[in-house]
Write a protein that binds this DNA or RNA. Structure first.
Lengths: 339, 339
DNA sequence: CATACTTATTAAAGATGTTTAATAAGTTTT
DNA sequence: AAAACTTATTAAACATCTTTAATAAGTATG
């Protein structure tokens, strides 16, 4: 972070927002101590925020022998965010406030088609108008590789190939936009939703339409890779003659993780062992609609054959779409809180 | 980084040091523009630094039509660092200044023995005295897992097990100390020495005394893992019945990478493919004394059998001990520049 | 219920950095 | 060589944040 003394207020404001939401509510003294910023400065900013309606007074604390402190909380409806994820068959969106409360959730026809960019634009325009411009940031999830808002690899949807979606939407609506890959958003969402402490390492496994894949977070950072190929676990060589993708297909017609046979369990267990030996993550996450509890248990037992069990990650199950949306929400929130 | 306005000078000073070393030399205007800090502030700090001997004037620029600007450079000998790495059979150390110039380099008997901590302490004391207290920071590399200066897993050297080496030395000499794992230091050193741009991902492969291992840097961060098990690639399952370690031993008596047979090449190629499919690093580094150029070429060809070649990392060879020392130097420098 | 004690808030003074104006030290032009 | 022009440095005015002192608004006690 570049800091010259001019920009200090740009550090204070997001910090105060974050603390207020984290603490639920706070007094000026509490904020001052929590953020190590002097009382008068906190006071000045908070007064301004109250004037703008960004912060609301919620009465006075009980006295502990002296003058009662005024208590404030963040007005969650001061800003709202729009999270959209684009899938093959549908577009799912949520409108939520910065308290995380969901205001509206729904589906729209897929925009991953001819002329989809136009459809998407129209949709966003409608949402913004319907919400009297409270929308302060937009997050868009796409099933492809993204580099700083530019979609540069999205097989099957040529229209979006090499398209700067972020720049395009920002220019149109003058609202900050973030575009992220679906799996990356899901990992982020899981971590956010489960209040994972920062700097943890997670792996999100899924068996998508184009074969299995993984979203990786290491030390709290998304892993994209030098050619944005990270997480393409299909290719991991696992047996004399088969890689992960091939091993998974063996003995089953579908490429899904459901209905498991023991050789598939073994393949997944080997994958877990591989992740452990290489990056030793805290947690590996499976999708609820793809894997059941009993399977996870078997995998846990099986992978201990390959690696000392004390190093194995926690194996857990989560709701992919939910995590995906949470991840987009989190990206959206970060964007609007840092303005 | 926590920033309250008191601590701004703690940001300015390291920034100025870094810029001066980076630029070689600079005028006040150049520094001001480079760091986006106002001229008077730069001037104030630089004058103070010149008074302390931290910065030296090197005359005036040619005029371009106006008053000639005074040019300054950092005095590399203002602070010196001590990097030590502890190995089974020897202890290697360097004393260097903050320009990276090596003042002294040498070997000492191993301290990874009974009473080794005492020997190490005496050694450091001697070095500090001999260098008239110019030593401003110390970096120590150890063949074990380290968490914030505490060595908590170092098989074979029980004396150091669970010992807070950093705290111990800092308390004794009142000099900032950093302790790091050998492979992590080597990765860092490689990255530093090859001027790798920030946020790259690297893998350093080696076949140590205790079997093969890897040091990982992802997005510019060291990867340690949840139980500090990251990089234990021995355990990666690769064939129906063999993991990496077993595959490597096959067909050769030694566990070294030298004298390769085709099945060993295949094992390494599979490992390269695995790294690519999972984290897609920019570069994988092999040790010069373990692998030769022709072997690397074979591995490059072989691994393309497992993964689209455009995603394969650059395979390169480097001097492990050199990188190790560079890494420790870098850690040392970071420590002293940020005081 | 007046006095002593707590604690929150406000006000004033001090520290630190930026902006803008003034000055110093050159070069180029006439 | 004086005038005009450039550019570096210094000085003064201004802005922002912190520290410390003063004041306001309570509670507890004799």
């Amino acid at each position: 972070m570049k800091v010259n003394s001019k920009s200090l207020s740009r550090v204070f404001l997001p910090a105060m927002r974050k603390s207020l939401l984290e603490l639920g509510s706070a007094t000026k003294v509490e904020l001052s101590e929590h953020l190590q910023i002097s009382f008068p400065t906190i006071s000045k900013f908070l007064t301004e925020m109250e004037k703008n309606g960004e912060v609301i007074s919620v009465g006075f604390d009980k006295s502990s022998g002296g003058r009662r402190a005024k208590r404030y909380r963040y007005n969650p409806d001061y800003m709202q965010g729009l999270a959209i994820f684009l899938e093959r068959n549908e577009t799912i969106y949520t409108i939520f406030n910065c308290g995380g409360e969901i205001k509206k959730q729904g589906k729209a026809p897929s925009v991953l088609i001819d002329n989809g960019i136009y459809t998407l634009t129209k949709f966003i325009e409608k949402v913004i108008k319907a919400n009297s411009s409270k929308i302060s940031s937009i997050a868009i999830g796409v099933p492809g590789s993204v580099d700083n808002g530019r979609i540069f690899y999205i097989p099957g949807y040529e229209q979006f190939q090499n398209f700067d979606l972020k720049g395009y939407i920002e220019d149109l609506f003058s609202i900050p936009v973030v575009v992220e890959n679906d799996m990356n958003a899901a990992v982020l969402g899981f971590s956010y939703n489960n209040r994972i402490e920062e700097n943890q390492s997670l792996v999100y496994l899924y068996s998508g339409q184009n074969g299995p894949g993984a979203g990786l977070m290491i030390n709290g950072d998304m892993v994209r890779g030098s050619t944005f190929f990270a997480g393409e676990i299909s290719f991991v060589p696992q047996y004399d003659e088969r890689n992960f993708s091939q091993a998974l297909k063996d003995g089953s017609n579908s490429s899904q993780f459901t209905n498991f046979e023991s050789n598939q369990i073994d393949a997944i267990s080997r994958l877990v062992a591989t992740f452990t030996a290489i990056m030793n993550p805290h947690t590996i996450i499976f999708c609820r609609d793809e894997v059941e509890k009993e399977v996870i248990d078997k995998i846990a037992i099986d992978s201990a054959k390959y690696i000392p069990s004390e190093h194995l990650p926690e194996l857990t199950i989560s709701d992919w779409k939910q995590d995906y949306l949470y991840g987009l929400q989190k990206l959206c929130l970060d964007l609007m809180m840092n303005k």
